[in-house]
Write a protein that binds this DNA or RNA. Structure first.
Lengths: 154, 154
DNA sequence: TTAAACTGCATCGCGCACGATGTAAACGAA
DNA sequence: TTCGTTTACATCGTGCGCGATGCAGTTTAA
């Protein structure tokens, strides 16, 4: 089901996109809030949790790599990493191959937190029947949307 | 298509929700960036644009009403409104019925901007073939998700 | 080889976004 | 009426999120 311009009136499209951008905006804020509550006992923000997700998947990444995977620039990521180092969750060492680059790695503390944190998140989702929403279809459509965005350089 | 706990393994669910929250996060950031570029010539941020959308729909609202419609608290909304007053886009007057409340209204400048701004947004969407994404289904699912969020008080 | 372009990171300033706290006004029950 | 509670805003501190700028290290091309 694709819509070509000319088939849909501009007015109708404008209304749709307004609603869509607003629903996405609210969904994101809702997710952030829900995760914030779950993560608060661990002294973690949502974005810090995203950094951990990336590193739990693959440890010892360059700052640049983390930024690419999360879609964050250095101006955002650097303060986050600094705080997480201060929390004793991350290590930072200069790369020998490229002295400009820094390797970010998990501390033992952060590795040990992996299971408890995932457990807490999962319990939260179960407790509020999160899967009553049609998560599969939603995610499929969101991926399509994000693929679209990544394909435009404007 | 609903999923009951027990049907889906916890591990699988945790993975799904991780991906989902991340896709929503990226979609929101992508929208914000796209709108930021379109709105920049008007000296408007995305959130300020959302405030205008609400007031174009219904002028002369209380701060509280705008906050409810956007899901924003006073700590977020107040600075935004202040900036928009400084920009000459909004007026603020004390309500006579309730001296605690303030009525926010559009200036003539902000009213006059309605058409040009919508035009700019629409042109952008057309120019990048935005409607190639399955926007209708996506929005339907997002509304379902947001309704779910609004129904839980945790 | 050396100058120019590029890359990875640090820093800054602005604008949200949110919870916490404070204040004045309105309201409700005793 | 009066006092406690609730409500509408204001203010503050923290943490993103982003573009812009600066710099050191790397790569490239002449």
């Amino acid at each position: 089901m694709k819509y070509k311009m000319g088939v849909m009136k501009m007015e109708r499209m404008t209304q749709l996109d307004q609603q869509l951008c607003f629903e996405v905006y609210k969904a994101s804020s809702n997710f952030t809030k829900m995760y914030a509550r779950v993560l608060e006992p661990f002294n973690l923000t949502f974005t810090q949790y995203l950094v951990l997700l990336v590193l739990w998947e693959e440890d010892r990444l360059l700052t640049k790599d983390i930024g690419e995977r999360l879609g964050l620039g250095t101006g955002t990521l650097n303060p986050i990493i600094s705080r997480m180092i201060a929390q004793g969750r991350l290590n930072k060492e200069q790369s020998k191959e490229d002295k400009r680059a820094y390797i970010i790695s998990l501390t033992e503390k952060a590795k040990a937190e992996h299971e408890p944190i995932e457990q807490a998140v999962a319990e939260k989702l179960i407790s509020c029947n999160f899967m009553d929403v049609n998560a599969i279809t939603l995610m499929k459509n969101l991926k399509e949307l994000n693929a679209f965005f990544s394909g435009m350089d404007l």
